[in-house]
């Protein structure tokens, strides 16, 4: 398998943060290093490609790559919300324990501070089991975005989060289609 990535030095979708609210960074980090976050998604899909039927490999490459683009958007949001915050402001936002270990750096952990772990993801080697996990992961990420949106009134960040939530809907759709393709794998009509 040949994989080539092209890096474009811009975000997939603009990220604007208009309200100084470091508290929101603590919630957003769930989508950075949480179980259903973008890092988990990217690593899960790109790793599953090697043992999945050929017809689905390209889909996993596309979506896995896009998850890294989403990861960068989340990182940008967290960075903007925290880069100018004083230790006092971070403490008030519940980020004192983050600060003593990482200062203003980002790190892969969830909103409760649990570090990212490969046990969040799976590659079972069974195409149906793996795709069903992927569908579940997209629905869980969609729900996470809903609960984050419910916790902010910053219209600019909500705009970016709504875009990310819609992408989860589209990814789930495409994984569901992949399952349908695999159901028909042995008697597909080939139309070119």
């Amino acid at each position: 398998m040949k994989a080539i990535w092209i890096y474009e030095k811009k975000l997939q979708y603009p990220v604007r943060v208009s309200k100084c609210d470091p508290r929101l960074a603590k919630m957003l980090i769930e989508q950075y290093g949480g179980a259903d976050g973008e890092l988990s998604a990217a690593l899960r899909y790109l790793n599953q490609r090697y043992s999945i039927p050929d017809k689905v490999i390209g889909l996993l490459t596309d979506i896995g790559t896009e998850e890294f683009a989403h990861l960068e958007m989340i990182a940008t949001m967290v960075y903007k919300l925290t880069k100018d915050a004083t230790p006092e402001q971070l403490r008030a936002a519940g980020l004192a324990d983050h600060y003593v270990n990482h200062s203003h750096a980002l790190f892969y952990h969830d909103a409760a501070g649990n570090p990212w772990t490969a046990t969040y993801i799976q590659a079972k080697g069974d195409p149906i089991a793996d795709l069903y996990e992927d569908i579940a992961a997209e629905e869980k990420a969609r729900a996470t975005y809903q609960w984050i949106i419910d916790n902010t009134d910053d219209p600019d960040i909500v705009d970016s989060l709504r875009f990310l939530r819609e992408r989860e809907v589209v990814h789930s759709l495409r994984f569901r289609e992949a399952v349908e393709i695999l159901k028909e794998y042995n008697h597909t009509k080939k139309v070119f």
């Binding site: 969609r142 809903q146 809907v169 289609e177 349908e180």
Partner: peptide, 11 residues
């Protein structure tokens, strides 16, 4: 929420 991908899972 029941998003549209659930109701119509194939384009």
């Amino acid at each position: 929420n029941v998003p549209p991908n659930v109701l119509q899972p194939f384009q």
